[in-house]
Structure formats: structure tokens, C-alpha cells
């Protein structure tokens, strides 16, 4: 199955299946929770028509401060109401000193930070009564690291005993920005824990820096990395993340088709697992 992120700009397009025909949709719960009116109608129609996964933005698993339990309660209601089985969040933090920052900040790759995140993933999984799929995020600089990224990620997912959302584009972006080998990184991940995969486009802003924008088409080297990666894995759903630049829906649809083509090559019988 190949999914697409549900954004307001393309909601109508998707619901009427004009050009875009994904197999499932992904919501950021924060963008839809507690809403009535026209957007609620859109959400209801989407839930009726498509299988749904949810991809959280604001849990801030890596923050020093307490988890926001009021928010987590609302989140659980939302996931229950919409019968969402797969919920994912980022291995990052978005809240600091009692202020939300609405972007993904890099957690220091340190063992105390890993312990802290493990505790929090466990607490959230328990409360939500569903496994959390933790996403490897793109980052532009390490901060006060005492171990490598791969050690950090592996420690956390193994010890929290959670699922993973593997973002192939993020691995590509990080490998480029921090000059490591993307395939070597992926081959060290616990791929049996991957619940689903993210694919996306990015933007190179400096000779040695890529920013993970989700606004451009996926580049060929990311398709190649994806092709190689899923060759090592059992079938899972794959989602195309696109956050803006929606003018050319034909182009976005062609990305969905291209992803599906690669999946079919490796996974002869499609397991409709989402």
C-alpha cells in the first residue's frame, strides 16, 4: 500500500480521487483534533473512504519537561474515534522551557537522553494502548553528542520495545549532511521493527547541506536507497510526505506510482497490511 499525507490543500482532490489515488492516508492529529465545521466533514469523509495512520507532531518525546497528559488524553480519544491503529511520532523534541516550538529539534545523542526517551515512549504506549512507531528524524547538526546517531536510535527502539517509522529520505539527508554511508546506517537498524516507511522530497540549500522540506519531488538517489532498503525487508506500507507545492498533482501521483512500482518489484504479493 502506498499512502499520502492528508493536507488541507489537497483534501478535496483526494476525496474526489481526481488525480491522486493513494491507498491510505496519514493525518497529523494536531491539525484536526478538536475541530468542527467544514474540516471535520473532510476528516470524516477521509476516514470513511481510506485506511488511516496518524503521525504526531507535538508529543515532544525528547523534552526535559513532563509529558503533556491533557494533550495525550485528547490524542487517545482522537485515535480511538477514528480507529487509528498505527500512530507514529518523531525522535526529537518540540517543546522547551514550557514553550512549544513547532519544529523538530535534535535530542543530544547521550545515554541519559536515551534513558529519558525510553521511559517516555513506554509511558505513552501504555496510555495509548497501541504501539508507537518512532521516526528517525533529519537533523542539521548534532548537539553535544556522546554516541553516534545509530547507537542512539537503536538503544531507544530496542529498550522501549517500540515500532519504527523508517524515513528513508531522512536517512539520505542525514547521511549527506553528516557524511556517513546511508546503506550502512540502514543495515544496522532493527528493520523487523519497521511498521511503515516515509518517502519525501527535500531541498539542497548549501553545497553540504540539505533541508528536509517535504516540498519537492523525491530525487533519484532516494528512490535508489528505498529500492535497496526494502530489498532487506518484509512488506510494509509506504507513505509519501508532501507538505506544500501541491500545484502539480500529476507529478505527485507519478511519485505514488513510482514508489508502488519499486514495492512490486520486491514484494511480489502485496500484503495489504495497513
Amino acid at each position: 500500500m502506498v499512502g499520502l499525507g492528508l493536507r488541507r490543500d489537497i483534501a478535496e482532490e483526494i476525496l474526489e480521487s481526481r488525480t491522486l489515488t493513494p491507498d491510505f492516508l496519514e493525518f497529523a492529529p494536531e491539525n484536526w483534533m478538536g475541530m468542527g465545521g467544514a474540516w471535520k466533514r473532510v476528516m470524516e469523509q477521509a476516514v470513511e473512504k481510506y485506511p488511516i495512520t496518524c503521525h504526531g507532531l507535538s508529543l515532544s518525546l525528547g523534552s526535559p519537561e513532563e509529558l503533556d497528559w491533557e494533550f495525550i488524553r485528547e490524542l487517545k480519544d482522537f485515535l480511538d474515534e477514528n480507529q487509528v491503529k498505527i500512530f507514529s511520532e518523531h525522535l526529537s523534541y518540540t517543546k522547551s522551557r514550557n514553550a512549544h516550538l513547532y519544529d523538530l529539534l535534535p535530542i543530544p545523542f547521550r545515554s541519559d537522553a536515551a534513558d529519558h526517551v525510553v521511559e517516555r515512549i513506554r509511558k505513552v504506549q501504555d496510555y495509548l494502548e497501541r504501539p508507537l512507531a518512532i521516526e528517525n528524524v533529519s537533523y542539521y547538526t548534532p548537539v553535544a553528542a556522546e554516541m553516534s546517531e545509530i547507537e542512539f536510535v537503536n538503544q531507544i527502539v530496542e529498550r522501549a520495545d517500540c515500532r519504527m517509522l523508517l524515513d528513508v529520505n531522512n536517512v539520505y539527508v542525514n547521511a549527506f549532511n553528516h557524511q556517513y554511508d546511508a546503506k550502512e546506517f540502514i543495515s544496522q537498524l532493527p528493520l523487523h521493527r519497521v511498521e511503515y516507511i516515509h518517502m519525501a522530497g527535500h531541498e539542497q540549500v548549501e553545497p553540504d547541506l540539505i533541508i528536509d522540506t517535504h516540498g519537492q519531488p523525491i530525487i533519484d538517489p532516494v528512490y535508489e536507497l528505498f529500492d535497496w532498503t526494502i530489498g532487506q525487508m518484509d512488506p510494509v506500507p509506504v507513505l509519501l510526505e508532501r507538505d506544500y507545492n501541491f500545484e502539480d498533482t500529476d507529478q505527485i501521483q507519478s511519485e505514488l506510482v513510482q514508489i508502488k512500482g519499486i514495492m512490486k518489484k520486491h514484494w511480489k504479493v502485496e500484503h495489504e497490511s495497513a
Binding site: 543530544p108 541519559d112 521511559e119 548537539v143 553535544a144
Partner: peptide
């Protein structure tokens, strides 16, 4: 489980993002 130092580093990055005032961040 977080050490004081790690907390401080994380908060300095947050502070910098909100205010734009440069902070001394180790290992960037």
C-alpha cells in the same frame, strides 16, 4: 534520568530558536 547538563543544553537550543540570541552550545 536526564542530567542537569543535558537539560541545560536542550533548553539553550530551545531558547535560541525562540529569541534568536546566540547561545554557547557544545558539539555543534
Amino acid at each position: 534520568s536526564l542530567r542537569e547538563e543535558t537539560i541545560q543544553i536542550q533548553e539553550l537550543l530551545g531558547e535560541y530558536c525562540r529569541t534568536g540570541e546566540e547561545q554557547e552550545l557544545p558539539g555543534v
